[in-house]
C-alpha cells in the first residue's frame, strides 16, 4: 500500500509539472501584457523597465524555473490587471468557490443517492419512471438555462432568494465564509442548485444502474435466502457494494464542478475564482489565468488521490491480503 501511495505521488508530481509547463507557455502565446498595462504614449524605456520588473527579459528556461519555484510557494507574480499579488487575489476568491462547490456536491449526493436507490428498488413504479424522464431532461438542458430559469422563478417572480452575489460574509482568519449569515445562506441556494442539478441526475442514474447490477448478484440472492430483511439486503449489502463506482464518479465530478463553477459564478456574479478567471481572460491577465489553471489541476490531482485511498477503506479485497486457505 505504501508503494502504491509513493507511485501515485510521483504520478501527481509529473501531472503538476506538465500543467505548470502549459500554464507557463500561456505567457508566450497570449499577447504581450506590456501593451495593455501601459498607456499608448509610453516610451521604449518605460516598456523595458516594466519588462524587467515582470521578469520578462530573462531567458525562457530561467523564467520557467522561477515560475516553478514561485508556484511551489504559492507565488504567481503580480496581476497585470489590478497590480496586486495573484496569491492575494486567489486567497480572497477561493473560499467562495469551494463553499459553492461543496454545497452543490452535498445537494447532488443528498438528492442523487436516495433517488437512485428508490428508482432501482421500485423499477416499474410511476414515480421512478417520472424521475427517469425528469433526469433525462435535467441532463440535456444546458446549465446556464437552468440558472436563468431559477433566477426568473425564485428571484424575479417569487422574490424569495437573491439572484447575485454572496450576501454577507464573515471572516474566519483568511477564510471568508457565507455560511454563518442568513443572507449568505440564502445567496448560496440558487447557485449551488444550478451547479449541482446536473450532478443529481448523473449520480441518480449511476446509483440506479449500479444498484440494479448488484441486486442481480448471487450474494444478494443468498442474503435473501438467509431471510435478511429487505432493509438489510438493500441498504446493508446492495448499497454498500455500489459505493465504489459512486465514490469514483463523485470524486471526479467534484473536480469538474470546480471547473464548471465558472459558468455558475458568471450567471450569479458569484465572487469566486471562476469569476476572477473570466475577468482575467478578458484582460489577458496571464499570471491570474496560469495560477487558476495550476490550482484547479492541483485540486483535481488531490481529489483523485483521495478517491484512490478511499478504495482501500471501502474494499477489503484491496487492503487485506488474501492468505487464502
Amino acid at each position: 500500500m505504501l508503494a502504491f501511495i509513493v507511485r501515485r505521488l510521483l504520478q501527481a508530481v509529473l501531472v503538476m509539472l506538465a500543467v505548470a509547463l502549459i500554464a507557463f507557455a500561456m505567457f508566450r502565446f497570449v499577447g504581450d501584457p506590456v501593451n495593455s498595462m501601459l498607456p499608448e504614449i509610453a516610451t521604449t524605456e518605460d516598456r523595458q523597465a516594466l519588462r524587467a520588473q515582470l521578469g520578462l527579459d530573462e531567458p525562457i528556461p530561467t523564467q520557467f524555473a522561477k515560475f516553478i519555484g514561485g508556484a511551489v510557494q504559492g507565488e504567481f507574480g503580480i496581476s497585470y490587471r489590478n497590480k496586486r499579488p495573484v496569491s492575494d487575489l486567489i486567497v480572497e476568491r477561493l473560499p467562495a468557490t469551494l463553499e459553492l462547490v461543496f454545497a452543490a456536491a452535498l445537494f447532488a449526493l443528498l438528492m442523487g443517492v436516495p433517488m437512485g436507490v428508490y428508482t432501482a428498488l421500485n423499477r416499474h413504479g410511476f414515480v421512478s419512471n417520472l424521475l427517469q424522464i425528469i433526469s433525462l431532461i435535467g441532463i440535456s438542458v444546458p446549465t446556464f438555462v437552468t440558472g436563468i430559469l431559477l433566477i426568473l422563478i425564485f428571484s424575479v417572480w417569487l422574490n424569495w432568494l437573491p439572484s447575485f452575489g454572496r450576501g454577507e460574509v464573515v471572516q474566519l482568519g483568511w477564510w471568508s465564509t457565507g455560511l454563518l449569515t442568513i443572507s449568505g445562506l440564502k445567496s448560496l441556494v440558487l447557485p449551488s442548485v444550478m451547479l449541482g442539478l446536473f450532478q443529481v441526475t448523473l449520480i441518480m442514474r449511476l446509483v440506479r444502474a449500479e444498484m440494479l447490477e448488484v441486486l442481480r448478484t448471487d450474494f444478494i440472492r443468498f442474503a435473501r435466502a438467509r431471510g435478511l430483511t429487505d432493509r438489510a439486503v438493500h441498504f446493508g449489502h446492495a448499497l454498500r457494494n455500489t459505493l465504489m463506482p459512486v465514490i469514483t464518479i463523485a470524486g471526479l465530478q467534484l473536480g469538474s464542478m470546480i471547473a464548471f463553477a465558472i459558468i455558475t459564478e458568471t450567471v450569479f456574479q458569484w465572487p469566486g475564482m471562476g469569476l476572477l478567471f473570466i475577468q482575467a481572460v478578458s484582460f489577458a491577465d496571464i499570471p491570474v489565468m496560469s495560477a487558476y489553471l495550476v490550482l484547479v489541476a492541483l485540486i483535481f490531482v488531490v481529489i483523485n488521490m483521495i478517491v484512490d485511498l478511499l478504495y482501500f477503506v471501502v474494499d477489503p479485497r484491496l487492503s487485506v491480503g488474501g492468505d487464502r486457505a
Binding site: D218, F222, R224, A225, L228, H237, R240, N241, P316, R317
Partner: peptide, 20 residues
C-alpha cells in the same frame, strides 16, 4: 427463510458479500 428453510447455492465464490 433462513429460520425454517435454508438454502445453499452453487457458487461459493459469489455467494458471500465481498465487503463484509
Amino acid at each position: 427463510r433462513g429460520r425454517r428453510i435454508g438454502a445453499i447455492f452453487q457458487d461459493p465464490l459469489t455467494s458471500l458479500n465481498p465487503l463484509f
